[in-house]
């Protein structure tokens, strides 16, 4: 995994309280009980906080799976 993806995985795993290994690119909201729609909003907030940027609505609605999260962070943060 690229360094940014690695960091996103750390934040996501810690926030959702899951093992990092289960975070496959296509895992998303609703696939595991820990990642429901409420946790999803919390996760986006946590990502913004940890990587110090703000997602606009257009970006937020594009994020549904782990891969989308990595893409969004990559756009805002350089490794």
């Amino acid at each position: 995994m690229a360094p940014i993806a690695e960091k996103v995985a750390d934040v996501t795993a810690e926030f959702l309280e899951v093992e990092k290994e289960i975070l496959t690119p296509d895992l998303g909201v609703g696939d595991i009980p820990q990642w429901d729609s409420v946790a999803h909003l919390g996760l986006l907030h946590q990502i913004e906080k940890k990587f110090d940027f703000v997602l606009d609505v257009e970006e937020m609605i594009q994020i549904e799976i782990f891969e989308d999260l990595i893409d969004a962070v990559s756009k805002h943060v350089t490794a």
């Binding site: 998303g28 909201v29 609703g30 429901d36 729609s37 999803h40 609605i61 594009q62 549904e64």
Partner: peptide
Amino acid sequence: DDGLKRPKR
């Protein structure tokens, strides 16, 4: 599908 958790889907 299981709810509208994944609007893009």
